[in-house]
Design a protein around this nucleic acid. Structure first.
Lengths: 225, 225
DNA sequence: GCATTTCGATACGGTACCGTCTCGTATCTT
DNA sequence: AAGATACGAGACGGTACCGTATCGAAATGC
């Protein structure tokens, strides 16, 4: 797909639009691109980020150096660091959790526990930090992260909440979007904004039950505002 | 004879390093340092960050260029970009909100509304994004931000919650730290992690009342399906 | 008046990376 | 076998920034 229209040595008689043609046949001629090289590059970037190297300090030369490949091999696949990083995001996406489906509370427990585990993992954290850093400057990176990581998980929670609302486990008058943020907010805040905070064992259950029950003292009447 | 490089560094006040040095003869000789120049540099950095320029792309040369000062003028005050950024954080800190003190709910409304407003402001957001990006690499920047911005606000909320717990507005068995995250989490998640999300007008009130009341249907004793 | 220091400006050598290109070799299709 | 392409390695000219040094002018204390 990302073929190079720059036949170097021979005639450069080509004119204006290089690659506007859809070119359906992938170039099967010549040596094919190594899939192993591709993985080595992506994995190398992930490892560097995990080690705490910020994306801003990653140069193509350094990536090539640590992956043990030539610079041209990288430029053959991606046009630059940001393009590459989009694929890194895709490659690092963890699988979605399986839901028991027995009740809204049970599903929420699984989802929040999964979120807590991800908060404890350096890989997710490193990725999120660097995505976050590039968000303002490079909306494409943010879009890729949102599409590949955030949106799927968010939809999972929203669907669980909607079903819970249908089944009477959730007050019908609450906004499910707000409810979602009430559940995931505490974990996200601790893992992203206060990395020194702890994510203790029973946190997911504490959050679910506390949010469901409310913080007002039990004897208080509902008429209070 | 020119100066040795050590006496140029004298940053004003330090965060983590003790540096209780009682001003080694603030050089009253010669031309004094311009306070206006100092402000111009700090404000220039803040404006650049507000415009979406990431901290990683800020070079001393560029800062000097946009502030209209010489490079040496910057190096005379700070030893590098990170040192400078610590002072930028301090300079951009907004004032703490005033609390009515009439009830826990009223105080929480003010605090969360204040937080919502900050989420809407580009200045806070730009700062937070860049602090966040540097967090892993440069713990000093994170420490400065935590000490100057996060901790004071957090303590404000925690005190309000503790008082509410004493006064019977908050269940005595809930962890105030968890309660804090339940209240601030939704706003922080929306402003930091989902910048496309909205922060609508009545959000603060919605959060406070929903968290206090709980998400479980009122008369229901059913917790499982 | 004079010493001292800061000011903006800019020159300086050094470093790192950019993206392209070339080389010799390896691997695939025809 | 011939042709095409990918591979690692690295040369290449160009750009931006680093941190220091120097300049003449300005601002202060003595």
């Amino acid at each position: 797909m990302r073929d190079n229209p720059r036949d170097t040595v021979r005639g450069r008689n080509d004119v204006s639009l290089a690659d506007s043609r859809p070119r359906p046949d992938t170039p099967v001629r010549g040596r094919p691109r190594s899939e192993a090289v591709e993985r080595a590059i992506l994995e190398g970037v992930i490892e560097l980020l995990e080690e705490g190297v910020p994306l801003a300090e990653l140069s193509i030369e350094r990536i090539a150096r640590t992956a043990g490949v030539g610079k041209a091999t990288i430029y053959r696949r991606w046009s630059g660091k940001e393009e590459l990083f989009v694929d890194v995001i895709r490659a690092a996406e963890p699988p979605e959790p399986e839901l028991p489906g027995t009740s809204m509370r049970d599903d929420l427990l699984v989802l929040l526990e999964n979120l807590r585990q991800r908060g404890l993992a350096s890989r997710s954290s490193a990725l999120l930090h660097n995505v976050h850093a590039q968000m303002k400057t490079n909306p494409r990176i943010w879009a890729a992260y949102h599409e590949n990581v955030i949106a799927p998980r968010r939809n999972l929670v929203l669907n669980v909440l909607r079903r819970g609302q249908r089944d009477g486990e959730l007050r019908p008058d609450v906004d499910v979007e707000l409810a979602n943020d009430l559940f995931v907010g505490p974990i996200l805040v601790r893992s992203v904004l206060r990395p020194d905070a702890e994510l203790p064992e029973g946190l997911a259950e504490d959050i679910v039950d506390t949010v469901l029950a409310g913080l007002r003292p039990v004897s208080s009447t509902v008429s209070q505002r």
